[in-house]
């Protein structure tokens, strides 16, 4: 399925409007700076545009697909980044400027959604939640996580699997995932 026909700037703009905020939020959560999140979002959306926005409907919603691309780019960014890139603590000052905006209904809905998922995550055993967060938001591979926690790789993978299965069950047949 082709969501944005190659060359259709207006159709692309709709995709951007709909998903930019979730995309930016995820990128920011992973890379930790506004500049980094901007770079990642820009790369991700331009790659979506340039690909002619092909996505496989069987693989889930458009949002999941967009966020999958953002996640991939953000982890790449993180793995490329060197220590001196931990610059710009002053980044944080800009925060209020954008957060002070009036909240729309969609934003409120998303905060509710965030709460639901967070609550489901909180019910997981701590060691399962930890490996999932280190992998998904931290960008660490399972072997890095095993080293970090001084735990066998097999155990780490097992925790990821159990944790994800539980999370899925708690979220109730994917109702939140749209």
């Amino acid at each position: 399925m082709q969501l944005v026909r190659r060359g259709k700037a207006a159709a692309f703009e709709v995709v951007y409007e709909r998903h930019a905020s979730a995309a930016f939020s995820l990128a920011y959560r992973i890379v930790g700076t506004r500049n980094g999140a901007e770079d990642v979002s820009q790369e991700a959306f331009l790659s979506i545009w340039r690909s002619g926005a092909r996505y496989d409907r069987g693989r889930g919603s458009v949002r999941s697909w967009v966020l999958g691309i953002v996640h991939h780019r953000a982890i790449d960014h993180l793995r490329r980044a060197t220590v001196h890139d931990k610059r710009r603590a002053s980044d944080e000052g800009m925060e209020e400027r954008f957060e002070a905006r009036e909240r729309t209904d969609t934003e409120v809905a998303r905060r509710d959604e965030a709460q639901t998922v967070r609550r489901a995550m909180e019910t997981l055993p701590a060691d399962q939640c930890q490996v999932i967060e280190l992998a998904y938001f931290g960008g660490f591979t399972h072997t890095e996580i095993a080293d970090m926690l001084e735990t066998p790789v097999g155990t780490v993978k097992g925790r990821m699997r159990l944790g994800l299965k539980k999370l899925r069950d708690r979220l109730g047949e994917g109702a939140v995932m749209r």
Binding site: F24, L67, V117, F137
Partner: peptide, 20 residues
């Protein structure tokens, strides 16, 4: 396929931050 919905829910848990 069974695990993907859970992974897809993870980005929904982050605090919304508006892009400039």
């Amino acid at each position: 396929d069974e695990l993907l919905p859970a992974a897809h829910a993870l980005p929904m848990s982050v605090d919304p931050v508006e892009p400039p």
